[in-house]
Nucleic acid binder design. Structure first.
Lengths: 220, 220, 220, 220
DNA sequence: TATGAATGAGGCTTCATTCAT
DNA sequence: CATGAATGAAGCCTCATTCAT
């Protein structure tokens, strides 16, 4: 896979190396955790040798932090855009935020990064602060804005947005965690779509004012 | 805490050793993760030497599994009892399940165990299966029974209980995780009571049939 | 040498381990220099395994510093005593200082330690300062006292003691260095006794006042 | 120093490369010792890349040997000339040999090369032999000739020249070593001129026959 | 039962050396 | 000639595990 005979190995684009290493690191850190991930395996998965890794990252910790930083920020940007630009009913915004976040995360290998941060926050306080400041608080803000927008437009009940945002985000994060940890061994297997439909169902029934509430909402 | 002055320490020890080691292990595994926890530290925290630990547990993995097993099962038993015995309105049962689970978990040092399992499930598939079978599925069943009871008594809407149980459990689990990982560095600090009140608020508004719904529910 | 079959290996006196490791370290550091010395070899020479070394010394640098400190201080003490207690002619003191220092150094494996410090001073500034303060300056003081005693008693010419002490110490140090570095491959081989006799000869002819000077000194 | 403004730098380079690398190597080997010197740093100091170094030297050891060889031989030639051509009193020859050797060494960056050889002789036996044969023995011979000349002309006492030459050379070598290793952290700082004056003072008082001896020699 | 000295496999990291351009 | 990305052997250090007392 990583050895194409016709092009010499070091000719391959120097500028792509960091990307490849970050991708390999993401996959392995998520799968095994920080400590159980060997740099030699990360390098091998990126198709280079152990030493090469040190041309791009100072050490294991530095690689780890880069993996987290590089992967999360784009996602958050996207979510912020979405709220900013939405024009329709807040119920649709809520639905879209939830479904598109999951869609983005599911297809990018980032499902595991929350688990990673949960597990390792204690060992990397500095990284935890970065994550809290740059990722969590921005995601929270997105949800708060969505809830307040709904209330301002008379579509949602007025609730304690500060807490409610966390209550709504929690099931999404748990879906990410489950799909990484117990998903593989749970019976029946996780069905993300049905799960998210139930979440949206609960949220809308729980938040919409009576006059906006769907007469008889059925899941999916 | 582990030194009770009135009884001489070597007379009391023998039968307590495993408990003390399990407690020390729980604390450290939760704080640092499996790999970053050194058996020497576990032994020291339990007030014994490194070698002693091997008189009670075969090796590190065995200690880890015992920590998980020993701590979770009692909690689940309690939750099962609660549903069985409840006689009143299902809204009260939901409220009680949520609040008493958190109460039990918060005061027993078990807050971290979910994080632990999430993080290490990948490295211990066998333990993950045990956890899934003995803990998760039983907790799930408790929630399902609560939802079905509500529907059967005409108090709750009819929903996809299989999914909804997970949606409701998720925020509780996340509260446990947050309080272990990002709690310490989040501003403003987590307020578990307000958070759970919002969760209950959302659930009841989202589940109760119109005629049972509180006219104007305010958070807390 | 270090493996006696009848007594189990770890029974051997815990309190002797540091000594054995320091001795092994001295030998190898002197022979190969700091960087070229492998801790595994030091451990092996002391009859223990790699890991054991870390029970007694924090790391390589710490071992190195301990080797230097532990070996030099006793020697300096001895030299200081000698000047303090001497009662006879200063020429005899000079002779005795030189010969007994070399005797002590030659039979204790410490011949190499000066070379070691010379070579590594640049890499361990902190250790160099210690050495300068605790060893060199005290040795210097011994020589200065000897020269001033001679002058005070009218036995030696009056000279610039501050510089002359270094001039006299230099050949002794060089003997230590030579015997470690080029001694093995020099032809004809070094003859320490004849060399020191020449040094004493030069010093006495160069320092004694005419009336004390040996009429016709012949080397040895 | 290595950047001459008037000629374009890539036109001048080719033939100067080896010299620049040898100079860079000398500086770093002396400062850090053989093992602690990284070829990348040598190359960088010479203003070339790591690979270039291998166009001129087979490997690290080869560079090291070349550094030693290239730097020492010219100095020895000069010293030999000096004895050959001297016509005056042997006391003046002794003084001139000592002072001019130090002068040459002090201003050429070669002060450290003795330390280098001392420290690494054990690791490079072959180089040590070269150094012994090509440098040390020739320097020794120069001193022996000086002493024998003095004796033959009736100016010096008759001494064991074979040993005495080493005794006289030792303080000069130590001055080189000190100025490299402990010089920086010694208080008061080394004063080479005063030190050498004391050496000459001692030698002349110790070697000159009574009739040639200066009535009252004062340092400097 | 309890100790803690000892072990050694295994991971992170460095750096001399190579080689395609 | 020159470059610098890539390699991999080798060393420091950690820590789970053993075992004689």
């Amino acid at each position: 896979m990583s050895e194409s005979a016709k092009e010499p190995r070091w000719e391959r684009r120097k500028q792509d190396r960091p990307q490849e290493l970050l991708a390999a690191g993401l996959a392995l850190f998520v799968e095994r955790g920080y400590a159980a991930t060997r740099l030699e395996d990360v390098a091998a998965r990126a198709g280079v040798s152990k030493g090469t890794l040190y041309l791009y990252f100072e050490n294991k910790e530095s690689l780890f932090k880069s993996v987290v930083r590089a992967n999360m920020l784009p996602l958050v940007d996207e979510a912020e855009d979405m709220v900013e630009r939405h024009t329709g009913h807040s119920a649709d915004l809520l639905r879209e935020l939830i479904l598109s976040w999951w869609g983005a995360v599911e297809h990018s290998g980032l499902v595991g990064i929350s688990k990673l941060m949960m597990a390792e926050a204690g060992n990397f306080p500095e990284l935890a602060q970065f994550y809290q400041a740059e990722v969590i608080s921005r995601c929270d803000a997105v949800m708060v804005r969505m809830l307040e927008r709904g209330a301002a437009r008379g579509e949602f009940r007025s609730v304690d947005a500060e807490q409610m945002k966390k209550v709504i985000v929690a099931p999404i994060l748990m879906l990410m965690l489950w799909s990484q940890s117990f998903g593989p061994c749970s019976i029946p297997p996780l069905d993300p779509q049905a799960y998210l439909a139930s979440l949206i169902d609960l949220c809308l029934h729980g938040l919409l004012k009576p006059e906006h509430k769907p007469a008889q909402q059925q899941p999916d």
